[in-house]
Amino acid sequence: MLRDRWDRPVDGGSWFVHHGEDSFGDAESRWEADVPRVTPNDRFFVRNHTRPPVIDEGAWRLLVSGDGVVGDTTYSLADLKAFTSTTYERAVECTGNGRSLFGTQQGTPTPGTPWELGAIGVARWTGVPLRTVLRHAGLRGDAVQVMPVGLDAPYVEDGINHGRVRRPLPIGKALDDTIIAWEMNGEPLPPDHGFPARLVVPGWVGIASIKWLGELRVTTSVVDSPWNTRWYRMHGDDWSGDHAVLDRMPPKSVVDVTGEPSVGHLTLLRGRAWSGEASIRMVEVSTDGGESWDEAHLTGPNEPSSWVEWEHPWTPTGVGPATLMTRATDSLGRVQPLEAPLNDDGYLFGAVVRRVVTVTSEVRRRTPA
């Protein structure tokens, strides 16, 4: 279960929970009650496989290659910026976001970075649609996929060199809403987030949004990489074939604000909901551990592959612990389940999240310390 409150900044104002000893290790956002709609760059979660590379913006080039284009073409950052750009607010979410809840909530712990629910952020990304660049480079009609390749150092595990981080993207998604981004919230991409350019693949598992982009290999046949076979694929009982492929993220929701609930007094619960490649149709809230559900009120923008805020009034009727639960339904009709399907790597935790709060009596709440 989630803690009664999100951790507040400690050690002089750190906004992160750091996972791992290396400087390129994982860093999870610590949300307070005032969760911003757009995540500031310095509060955006970090997930790197190797140390961020140091890249000279002026010398950087993007190579478009492979038998799926008419010939090799290179682009500078200035070349990309000469195309018509686009800006949108979209989430990037780690595939393992919520992994720790497999253990704390479902009693089935899995290995890997023990994310709670802070491995997600929404940013305002600016860049050029990937389809624009592919077509300019001479995309062939029989191309079936794009393999974006990062410029970070080759990833070595147990003495095996797996090469640079790369993961195939089907041509349909590449030509849809994927962009090559060079700005994050109106600023050049920070080093941890892919400077000088990265992919943003809305609604898909975070690993698809390759950082420090250096090459786009366009092919007329399906080519795999360790990042869609060895990792970032469902493994375990009942996972095989197309069923094991990881692409679109599931709907999720969370309670952010609980106030100080006391018997007989109104408190306003607030939170967020989001879903991969979909907007949110409805959020339901339970304040009695799932015995009953009420529909919450959605507020503000509600765009696909981003998050929407919700609020719900609650007047507690008894003192003691109360279990708050939220359940999102997205525009594709997907509903959060009570339990997330178990898999060996703890991916795609999309189950209803339980959050326990303590309801006090009016006297206890209002008596001076």
Rank of each mutant, 00 (worst) to 15 (best):
T299C: 09
A340W: 06
V308F: 05
T74F: 09
L80Y: 09
P250G: 10
A197K: 04
L63P: 00
R43V: 02
G12L: 02
S253K: 11
P9E: 03
Y75H: 01
D56W: 06
G333W: 05
R334K: 08
E89S: 11
V10T: 12
E309S: 13
M325N: 05
P250H: 09
I55R: 06
P129L: 03
N41H: 05
V319I: 11
L117K: 12
W60F: 04
E362D: 11
N302Q: 06
V201M: 00
K173E: 15
S23W: 10
W227T: 09
D256P: 01
R30Y: 05
V357N: 04
G241A: 03
A78R: 15
E309F: 13
A59S: 13
W125G: 09
P40R: 11
G103P: 02
G271P: 07
T74Y: 05
F44G: 01
W310S: 05
D67M: 02
I207E: 14
V69D: 05
D224C: 03
T329L: 03
W31A: 08
F102H: 11
N48Q: 12
T39Q: 08
V133P: 09
S221H: 15
D288A: 10
L216Y: 08
P261C: 06
H193Q: 12
F16N: 02
N302E: 08
L348R: 10
M147Y: 00
G118R: 06
R354D: 15
P341E: 14
E277P: 01
E362R: 13
M184Q: 15
P170F: 00
R233C: 12
M234K: 15
H19E: 01
R124V: 04
N48I: 04
V257Q: 04
W293I: 01
P226D: 03
E311A: 09
V335A: 10
H49Q: 09
D67G: 01
H312R: 13
A119T: 02
E187T: 01
G68C: 09
D237L: 13
F102A: 11
T73G: 02
R140K: 14
V70E: 13
Y232D: 12
